[in-house]
C-alpha cells in the first residue's frame, strides 16, 4: 500500500471556508428579518421608533399583542382564516383523492375524458373579469364559500395522488373486489389508508396555500369585514403603511391615546406579521417531513 503523504490541501481548506461563509451568510440573511420583526413586536412601540432594535427587544412589552389580539376585527379574521384553512384542507384532500381513485381505474370509461378536462385547466385560464362575474352570478361574493369551493380539486394535486395510487399493488384492490367489495368500500377501506403519505403532502400544501391567500378576500369579500382574513388584514396594514391613514392604525392610536402605552404602524405591522407567521412555523417540521417527498412524486409523469 502506498503511504499517504500528509500535506496541506489548500484547495480543500479554501473551499470549506468559502462554503461555510456563504451558508452562514445565507442563514443570517434568511433569519434576520424574522428575528428583527419578532424583537420589534415585543418591544415598546415608541421605543422602537428610536431605532436600534435588532435581535432582542430593548423595552419588553406584551402590549402590542394584547392590543391587536383583543381587537374584534383581528380576532374574527383569525377565526375566518383558521376555518377556511381547516375546511379547505379537509374537503380538497378528500375530493381530490376520490377523483384520483376513479382516474386510476383503468377500466373506467370516463377516465380519459375527465383527465383531459382537468389537465387542460393547467394551461388555460378564463382571466380576472370572467371569473369574477361567474363567482358573482353564483352568489359567492360576500360569502365564506368562495374560499373553499372554487379550488376544490386542482389538476396538479390530482395528478400527484393518481400517480401515487397507480404505484400501489393492484393485487390489493383486485382481491378486495373478488371478495365483493364495491368501489366506495375499496376507496375508503383500502385506498385511503394506503395513501396517507401522499395525502399528508397534499393536505399540507393546500393548508399553506389557504392560510397564505389574500387575493380572494380582496376581490370577492372586501366589502364584508365579517369575512376578512388575517392575510388580508395584514395586507391592508402594509398598503396603508406609507400614508398612515389605515382605519386600523387610527383606531388603535385612538385606543392608546391617554394611556401610558402607545402603538405605531411599525409595531402593528411587526406584530401582525408574527401572528400570521407563527402557524406556518408550527407546521413547518411536518411540512419538511413530507414536502421533499411530495416534490419528487409531483415530478413523476405518467
Amino acid at each position: 500500500m502506498m503511504i499517504k503523504k500528509r500535506y496541506v490541501n489548500w484547495e480543500d481548506i479554501i473551499i470549506n471556508v468559502f462554503v461555510y461563509i456563504i451558508l452562514i451568510l445565507l442563514i443570517i440573511v434568511t433569519l434576520y428579518p424574522f428575528l428583527n420583526t419578532l424583537a420589534i413586536s415585543f418591544n415598546d412601540a415608541l421605543d422602537s421608533s428610536k431605532g436600534g432594535i435588532h435581535l432582542w427587544p430593548r423595552k419588553f412589552t406584551l402590549y402590542n399583542y394584547k392590543t391587536l389580539l383583543t381587537r374584534r376585527q383581528i380576532f374574527h379574521a383569525s377565526l375566518v382564516s383558521v376555518a377556511r384553512t381547516v375546511l379547505s384542507t379537509f374537503l380538497c384532500t378528500f375530493s381530490t383523492a376520490m377523483v384520483a381513485y376513479t382516474l386510476s381505474r383503468k377500466e373506467f370509461v370516463l377516465r380519459k375524458f375527465i383527465s383531459f378536462v382537468y389537465v387542460l385547466t393547467m394551461y388555460i385560464d378564463g382571466g380576472l373579469v370572467p371569473t369574477y362575474f361567474l363567482i358573482r352570478s353564483l352568489g359567492l361574493t360576500n360569502s365564506f364559500w368562495v374560499y373553499v369551493l372554487p379550488g376544490l380539486v386542482s389538476a396538479f394535486n390530482l395528478i400527484v395522488i393518481r400517480t401515487y395510487i397507480n404505484g400501489l399493488p393492484d393485487s390489493l384492490i383486485e382481491s378486495a373486489r373478488v371478495d365483493g367489495a364495491g368501489e366506495f368500500t375499496i376507496f375508503f377501506k383500502i385506498v385511503l389508508p394506503l395513501c396517507k403519505p401522499v395525502l399528508a403532502t397534499i393536505a399540507l400544501f393546500v393548508a399553506v396555500d389557504n392560510w397564505n391567500a389574500w387575493f380572494d378576500t380582496f376581490l370577492y369579500n372586501s366589502a364584508n369585514p365579517q369575512l376578512s382574513t388575517l392575510q388580508y388584514e395584514l395586507m391592508k396594514v402594509l398598503q396603508s403603511a406609507n400614508t398612515m391613514t389605515g382605519s386600523l392604525e387610527q383606531a388603535l392610536a385612538q385606543a392608546a391615546a391617554g394611556t401610558v402605552h402607545t402603538i405605531t404602524p411599525r409595531a402593528i405591522r411587526a406584530t401582525m406579521t408574527i401572528i400570521v407567521t407563527v402557524p406556518i412555523v408550527i407546521v413547518y417540521p411536518f411540512l419538511q417531513k413530507y414536502f421533499v417527498h411530495g416534490l419528487t412524486v409531483g415530478g413523476v409523469k405518467e
Partner: peptide
C-alpha cells in the same frame, strides 16, 4: 359500461361538473 360503473361515475362526475363550472364557464365569458 357506464351503468355498470355507476359507483365510479358517482365519485367523479359531480367534480367534473364542478370543474366545468369554475374553470370552463369563465372561458365562455371571453
Amino acid at each position: 359500461k357506464l351503468k355498470q360503473q355507476k359507483a365510479l361515475v358517482l365519485m367523479s362526475v359531480p367534480f367534473l361538473i364542478h370543474v366545468i363550472i369554475f374553470k370552463y364557464i369563465p372561458i365562455w365569458g371571453w
